[in-house]
Amino acid sequence: MSENFRMINATEELVAFCDLAQANGWLALDTEFVRTRTLYADLGLVQARTGAEIVLVDPLNGVDLAPLWQLLRSDIIAVLHAAGEDLEIFQRNNAAPQNLFDTQVANAFITDGSQIGYAGLVEQMLHVSLDKSQSRTDWLQRPLSPAQLEYAAADVEYLAELYPSLRAKTVAAGMEELVLAECQEQVAKRARESVAELAWRDIGGVNLLTGQGRAVLRELAAWRLTLAREKNIALPFVARDHVLTDIARKLPNNRQALSVIDELHPKSLRLYGEAMLACVEKGLAAPEEQHPEEIPRYDQDPEYKRFFKAAKALLKAAGEKANVPVPLMGSRKQINEVYVWQHFTRDETKEKLYQPDLYQGWRGALVAEQIAELVAKSYS
């Protein structure tokens, strides 16, 4: 690892770097952040490279990052590795990359579809072993240590070296179009903000609740997500999932009854007890026709098992025909999304949700029609 990087300490320096990147047409980019008790990540450092220029931008020292956000919104190619959480930070600054090239995604398409970490890919392609000892350090502390700065700079130094080789390999393999499509789907996914009133659908244990219990859980989950967004609190620090399902099952109607809910933290009881009880009351008042739909446990259902087996075979055949690594065609989760969408999701709910991955994008173009026919047959 060279020490050929510099700190950007003034906004005009960042403007000059962004102008250079714009002229080059691409930049390698990474972020360091902390997310412990917050819903949203706290940005601690931005690393970037274009050409031979490596810079570290400290967002806590007064540098205005607006020029970088504007650059990402342009037609520049943003090169990242496993960009998911970085994209969340960009999205919150209205800076979704228009042209993302994710080296993890690219490598998956030109190999066997498996996901590899940055250090592993650098070692595999460049024969360089990276020091990952700083990955869990506090990126909000100041001053940052020399070891932290060197670690951060390495994340974009070698990323920039991986990019041209991986880009060429995707072209040679006829995969460039699919790789870029998958990258843009990842950008689009991170831009989605889930509907608070449907947050109950993502909570485990919902299959054990009655219609009345689901109505209560709907109110609790919507309240928790709304509060977490307003206060920037990680969901478990408001209340854990199983606490919400326990409340929806036991239906406490006073603070004493609420206080004996298993693992409800005393602080949460003190701060949010009245709000939780109000959610119970509102859920109980919902008429039966307004109860959320049932999502039963289906993994032991013979019909589901037959569908899943057939869906896996269909995806395998489609992947082989399109020369796409089979693991990238669809995961168990993505197959299950289709099953729940088709059998346990009302039309009015579908209008508020995004379609399953297998029904849209490049995957949908390959398999949507066949998957829809298959899942329809499973309950016929």
Rank of each mutant, 00 (worst) to 15 (best):
Y158Q: 10
V156P: 03
S129I: 15
W139K: 09
L126C: 08
T111Y: 08
E176T: 14
F109W: 05
D155I: 10
L126R: 11
H127Y: 09
P146N: 13
T111R: 13
G117V: 00
M125I: 10
Y118M: 01
Q148S: 13
Y163V: 08
A168V: 13
S129G: 12
A160F: 02
Y151C: 05
E150V: 13
G120E: 00
Y151A: 01
L140C: 04
Q134M: 09
R142D: 04
N107S: 13
P143R: 05
F109T: 06
P164G: 07
A152R: 01
N107K: 12
S133L: 05
I116V: 14
L121E: 02
K132H: 02
S129P: 06
T170E: 04
A173R: 07
D131Q: 12
P143F: 02
G174I: 01
Q148P: 04
M125H: 10
G174A: 03
S133F: 04
L159A: 05
M125W: 07
M125N: 14
V171Q: 13
Q115K: 15
S129H: 12
Y118L: 04
Y118Q: 03
A108C: 08
E150L: 10
S165A: 12
D112V: 02
Q134G: 10
S129N: 15
N107L: 14
P146S: 08
F109M: 08
Y151F: 05
S165V: 11
I110S: 04
A172P: 15
M125T: 07
D155A: 02
G120S: 06
A153L: 03
A154Y: 03
A154C: 09
A172K: 15
Q115G: 09
T103N: 00
G174P: 11
S145W: 02
M175A: 10
S114K: 15
P146T: 04
D155F: 06
A152Y: 03
L159R: 01
Q134Y: 01
L144N: 11
D102N: 00
E123Q: 15
A154G: 10
Q141D: 14
A119G: 06
A154T: 05
A147Q: 07
S135H: 11
Y118P: 06
R142W: 05
Q141R: 15
A147T: 09
A147I: 00
S129Q: 13
M125E: 09
P143W: 05
A119M: 04
L121Q: 04
Q134F: 05
T137P: 14
Y151W: 00
R167S: 12
Y151L: 01
L159Y: 07
D155P: 03
S129A: 15
R136P: 02
A153G: 14
V128L: 09
G174V: 09
L130V: 02
L121G: 03
P164A: 08
G174L: 07
E161L: 15
L166H: 08
A119N: 08
S133P: 09
T170D: 04
K132F: 02
G120K: 07
A172H: 11
R142F: 10
Q115N: 12
A168H: 11
T103R: 02
S135C: 14
L149G: 11
T137N: 13
L166C: 12
S135K: 14
S145K: 07
L162N: 08
H127T: 10
